[in-house]
């Protein structure tokens, strides 16, 4: 293997790598969002059943996918942290959680505003909405646990256990909610269950891709702050401050995430 993956497991080297990657992912996120919105909001025709209310799909479905997928990625990092005991893993879990929670909330919010014109109410105890709500609770639980532990290493490990317990439970929760739902109200009419036109599907997939790019960019930016905060006592952070030009003794730094990183290895 030519690439030494474990080299980047060290926060100091990952910091530089993330800094080089952020502009690319940010650019991709901006471009795909604009393209996706253009396809979905401008080009795509009005749905003959739901009228223009269906256009919420372009954020609802990508947000719901991203909310779920981010939890799986968190669990993957948590597992890596347990197996390899790398510090970076816990930091990545910490960096991903707020964005995952945000997308899950967006899925719930847009679901409510889509449900109102389609189902006649803002909230129904639909199986998918209910499981998404529970997923949101799991994110809140992780962040609450992290917030109440002062020692970051303990927070990493406790968070990893909680995330793994959560990810094992997610299929059980989904199945049980499905079961509960079919017993209580029968099959519900789902928006978007009818076959979609190609333009609509394209718009949705582009928006889903945009959500991916955004999540990667924002979590990389966040993990860089986390790395700096946790390693502020180490020498490499001091060198980095000088190399990046934040080293002025007067102190007010004007750095933005993704500012160029030539000085960092």
């Amino acid at each position: 293997m030519a690439i030494h993956w474990f080299k980047y497991a060290a926060p100091a080297s990952f910091y530089g790598l993330a800094g080089r990657m952020i502009p690319w992912f940010t650019g991709a996120a901006v471009v795909t969002t604009l393209v996706g919105l253009y396809i979905g909001m401008v080009l795509a025709p009005t749905d003959f059943q739901q009228g223009d209310s269906y256009r919420i799909i372009y954020i609802h479905v990508p947000a719901a996918w991203m909310g779920m997928f981010t939890y799986l990625v968190m669990a993957g990092w948590a597992a890596a942290g347990v197996v390899f005991n790398t510090r970076l893993s816990g930091m990545m879990v910490q960096a991903l959680a707020p964005t995952g929670a945000l997308f899950t909330f967006v899925a719930l919010w847009t679901g409510a505003f889509w449900g109102r014109p389609t189902w006649g109410t803002y909230w129904v105890w639909d199986a998918r909405l209910t499981s998404t709500l529970i997923l949101f609770f799991l994110y809140i639980g992780y962040m609450a646990l992290r917030a109440s532990i002062d020692d970051p290493r303990r927070a990493d490990r406790a968070g990893a256990v909680l995330t793994l317990v959560g990810v094992v439970n997610i299929p059980i929760i989904y199945f049980s909610v499905q079961w509960w739902n079919t017993l209580h109200q029968g099959a519900s009419v789902r928006p978007g269950s009818s076959s979609m036109a190609t333009v609509m599907l394209t718009g949705m997939l582009v928006m889903a891709f945009a959500a991916w790019m955004y999540t990667i960019a924002i979590s990389l930016a966040r993990v860089r702050s986390i790395i700096i905060e946790r390693e502020q006592h180490s020498a490499w952070v001091g060198e980095l401050l000088v190399a990046e030009g934040h080293g002025r003794p007067s102190g007010t730094s004007e750095a933005l995430p993704g500012s160029n990183e030539q000085g960092a290895r």
């Binding site: 945000l102 955004y214 502020q232 006592h233 730094s253 750095a255 995430p257």
Partner: peptide
Amino acid sequence: TALLVVAEVAWVVKQRRRSLARAQVQR
């Protein structure tokens, strides 16, 4: 959705500034 995304970006930018400032104090 747009509001939340803007808020998150602003939060990350603020977090970045704060962590750099703290590291500067440590140095």
